[in-house]
């Protein structure tokens, strides 16, 4: 029933393939501020296999790139926090 409801949904509620492909990066990066536009893309992705596959590929690509993130050096973070304390102490001494 849900699927049927989706199929009969007015085309106004659903973006076209061209619109989706133009905005897919921003949509997947959560950079579409207009909630209605984002919903129209989401509705399209639910029913369009081609655009859906493109979205999945970009999502996987993003996840894989995220795993490339270098580990932040814990020693460097400690030294920077210590530097913050030095700034604070100098401020309090003034």
């Amino acid at each position: 029933m849900k699927a049927l409801m989706r199929m009969v949904r007015s085309t106004d509620d659903m973006a076209s393939c061209i619109e989706v492909l133009r905005n897919l990066d921003a949509y997947l990066d959560q950079e579409i501020p207009d909630q209605r536009a984002a919903r129209r893309i989401a509705s399209h992705l639910e029913v369009c296999r081609r655009c859906g596959m493109r979205a999945e590929t970009i999502t996987e690509l993003k996840a894989s790139l995220r795993r490339l993130a270098p580990t932040v050096d814990a020693g460097a973070l400690d030294r920077l926090r210590h530097f913050a304390r030095t700034l604070e102490e100098q401020g309090n001494d003034r």
Partner: peptide
């Protein structure tokens, strides 16, 4: 000066990780 110290802790310290990246 106290406000500055509080602001440093509130706004700057939580961003150290991303700043370093």
């Amino acid at each position: 000066e106290r406000d500055r110290v509080a602001a440093l802790e509130q706004y700057v310290l939580p961003q150290l990780d991303v700043l370093l990246r």
